[in-house]
Design a binder for these strands. Structure first.
Lengths: 342, 342
DNA sequence: AAGCGCTAAGTTACCCGTAACGTAGAGCGT
DNA sequence: ACGCTCTACGTTACGGGTAACTTAGCGCTT
């Protein structure tokens, strides 16, 4: 089925028109059901379309009309993290319902990757962009402003977005978790996470967490696994390192649930009881966490909903409907049973 | 930052050329570093590019050159299933390394959705397509053949693909699991899955599974959760329904690990011991399964690798390098400890 | 001084649709 | 029979780049 790569072998509208014995314009009108043609002509054109297997070239359409495309660029840090996979699913389901397509960019939490991706995706004249995170490089911001297309920043709640934003306040969610652990009576508390840009939602959570814990008379010992992904195994080894370097840790808060699971496995493998000997708290409330006999103490966010709302904001803006530009979808604490209950 | 939507406010190459006092063609040559211009001219053009914030319009390039774009359409059934999220991550990482972008299509396991998505994405002149599954609607196949672009079918091993294919033999993987359970001494075996198209990898697994079990003197009782996703809760309720309608079930094989976790939770909640009272087997070997005290009996597939190889095949074909068109990446059984060990 | 080759440009045509405008012929009223 | 309106088309220009071709000007040879 491979054809010569040099010249297009695609069937064009002109060919359809020629075969049908009409002008390009008439064929175009028929295909767009614009009216201004007889039933006989319509049937003839459609017959040739079928016979030749004509597929419209949307590139040319966009090009002709000075329109933008139906693409929406979507940047997501990673998909190994279930949370972001769900956000993307929510976005794409909603976008595709309205005839848009997601152009994916995995930006790995780095502003440089994001900038490069933005440059590339903008060159395809997307209808809009959905970006994870509120921080962007200066050049990226410049390009985004010049692009003149709708932009939704998701994940971090952002009261002064470039254009629109939907997310949660990560600082607050960290703060609430910190306060909860203090209320549970913990004071010597560990944190295990990965080390990325400071311009990162997880960093905000940690900041909020530390503020609450230290404000409550506690102490946070941090263990950051450098250059690693926020998954199960780093949680395991990060916990090992934390407990080896620090004694007296009563409870550990993890960057996310996957890491918390890893940490919990380390603790139980070492004969520690959760929560009797050590408390474990995650973030994100993965659906799978309900499997465990003990429900993981965590923070719940509706990831799918987050994605859907982001896409809906995009679609509304593209349809020139009024849009509330900033939305906080909130979170709630799952007490679980992996921390000691007062 | 919203601008008038009617006329493009984008900076075009002509504007850059005019500002720089050269022709479009010269500016084009400078930007493509094609040579044939003086250093003075180059510097002048680049300065204006910077000043005006010019971003090339790749749509026009593709259009002009009868080339295909750098887009690669990627159809994935769903992202809620971690397995597919990982496949997509593998694909996109590899594609983006070589300057390509993924255009996502969530086709929800239905051929109709896939067909519609193929039609749309082909109209954007993609460089190639990566499709999950070996079954496509007749019209989809027709379009794919006419498109004249590289196509990689993934997930199902497929010895006579449309173009290229990488995956595993799902029938065999089901068969191996069936034989293993028979070897473990089970004969009254349940299956819990969802009901989709028969044209589905999970169906092949079930077929292979039944063949092995029935060939080994066992009996398979199926419980298909209609119109539901293959996740945790359907696994839970499917198990409830199966055990209510059938007695004497000794072991249950699930469509995937997530459903198996749901089933296991149901069983333990009802006071059954795993594997003493009932055996549980999943498929896919989710990383998270290592969290459980008992490793889930499952079937391991390297999802990330699958995606990477698919993308690599695409890239090689696009670079006119020779490509082995069919690849089986295999699987291996994780005995685990959720089935009775002989 | 004519001829040649080279560099650094410019010019033209084209890709595939669509907007805007032009027109032939039918139908109709007077 | 004339003008008018309306339908059903056709014609032209255009969008942002690029391939292919052309050209101006310079240095060098003979």
């Amino acid at each position: 089925m491979r054809e010569k790569p040099n010249k297009t072998n695609k069937v064009s509208l002109s060919e359809v028109a020629r075969e049908a014995g009409v002008s390009k314009m008439t064929a175009s009108r028929v295909l767009r059901e614009e009216g201004g043609y007889s039933e006989k002509t319509r049937a003839l054109v459609m017959q040739k379309v079928d016979e030749l297997g004509y597929l419209p070239n949307r590139l040319a359409t966009v090009f002709a009309g000075d329109q933008s495309s139906t693409f929406v660029g979507v940047s997501i840090p990673e998909l190994g993290n279930e949370v972001f996979a769900q956000v993307l699913e929510g976005i794409d389901r909603q976008l595709s319902t309205f005839g848009h397509q997601s152009v994916l960019g995995l930006t790995q939490h780095t502003l440089k990757d994001e900038e490069d991706w933005i440059r590339t995706v903008l060159s395809w004249q997307p209808a809009g962009l959905i970006l994870t995170g509120r921080y962007h490089s200066p050049r990226a911001i410049e390009m985004l402003k010049n692009a003149g297309i709708p932009i939704v920043e998701i994940w971090d709640y952002n009261s002064s977005p470039l254009d629109m934003s939907v997310g949660i306040n990560h600082f607050d969610s960290g703060f609430d978790m910190g306060r909860y652990l203090i209320e549970c009576g913990y004071t010597r508390i560990g944190y295990v996470g990965t080390s990325h840009d400071a311009a990162n939602a997880a960093s905000s959570r940690l900041d909020g967490f530390c503020k609450a814990v230290e404000g409550g008379g506690g102490l946070v010992q941090k263990q950051l696994c450098l250059h690693d992904t926020a998954t199960f195994y780093p949680g395991f080894y990060g916990t090992e390192q934390l407990l080896a370097s620090q004694s007296g840790i009563e409870c550990i808060f993890y960057q996310n649930d996957a890491m918390a699971f890893g940490g919990m496995q380390y603790c139980t493998a070492k004969g520690m009881q959760v929560p009797e000997d050590i408390g474990i708290a995650g973030w994100g409330d993965l659906p799978i966490s309900a499997v465990l006999k003990r429900r993981l103490t965590s923070m719940h966010v509706s990831h799918l909903k987050l994605g859907k709302i982001a896409a809906q904001m995009m679609i509304s803006r593209l349809s020139d409907e009024p849009v509330e530009p900033v939305k906080d979808i909130g979170f709630h604490l799952i007490p679980g049973s992996t921390v000691r209950n007062l």
